[in-house]
Design a binder for these strands. Structure first.
Lengths: 128, 128
DNA sequence: GAGAAAATTGACTTTCACGTAAAAGTCAAT
DNA sequence: ATTGACTTTTACGTGAAAGTCAATTTTCTC
């Protein structure tokens, strides 16, 4: 009773191309099953794709995303690697916090732009 | 009593290359003055660079950044253009809000990764 | 089981945001 | 006068992340 998704179902759901999903497979981010040559995506794959796209939206590279996925699959067993990973986590977190500040500032600025537009529209509207 | 910055002063301050700043000039984002052929950056240019880099961090393309700068320089005078601009603002704002949600989710996930690392480290530490 | 629709692979192309190398010019200090 | 640090332009190169196209299968649908 396994539920499978076809590749186009998922491209439609997420607004990406088949090429993109195949690319992600080539890059080792997902591992859909096969029936013959055709890819069969299971709910777990679908969920993973969702996370990949989220990572993409905030600017993670493919290899960064791959790293994160790896951690879930099998966390490194060696102390040195664990420490390296943790340092990366700290860096990424700082990075994301900075990004959030950037976003907040930019949102405020967009509000200004909008207001300027409205003002300008009012001026023009009055003039005609 | 105009204060000028040289290109390398700014590259050092912002951690970008000279190529990057020249590229931004080529792309029409900044317009430093010249003494002979040499670029002279004023505080206003420096400020603009800061904003450009902020836009870059959150994933704006060069042309999106250029558009925003244009609005401050001279807001469009035509109604149609103003309306188009306002729609873009709305879209960008939705976009940024989504990004903020993505970031928050990812921050939470990074916390999980960190915790998993600590747990793993404790296990290894206990075992030795 | 025939034909349409969908999926596959592989190769080539594109876009963005710079990097890099070459070949000079500028300027202050020694 | 030379060194060394810095700057300039021009032009080709690069890596990431797909897009596009063509030539086959494969899979549905009737």
């Amino acid at each position: 009773m396994e539920k499978y998704y076809t590749i186009t179902e998922l491209t439609r759901e997420f607004g990406v191309s088949t090429r993109t999903l195949r690319f992600y497979e080539d890059e080792g981010l997902i591992h859909p099953e096969r029936r013959g040559r055709t890819r069969l995506f299971r709910p777990a794959d679908r969920h993973l794709i969702k996370e990949i796209l989220r990572g993409r939206r905030i600017g993670f590279t493919i290899s960064e995303i791959r790293e994160i996925i790896q951690v879930y699959k099998d966390p490194p067993g060696e102390i040195g690697q664990l420490q390296m990973l943790m340092q990366k986590v700290v860096e990424k977190r700082d990075d994301l916090r900075q990004k959030r500040r950037d976003i907040d500032e930019t949102l405020a600025e967009l509000d200004n732009v909008e207001e300027a537009c409205l003002t300008r529209l009012a001026e023009i509207g009055v003039g005609t």
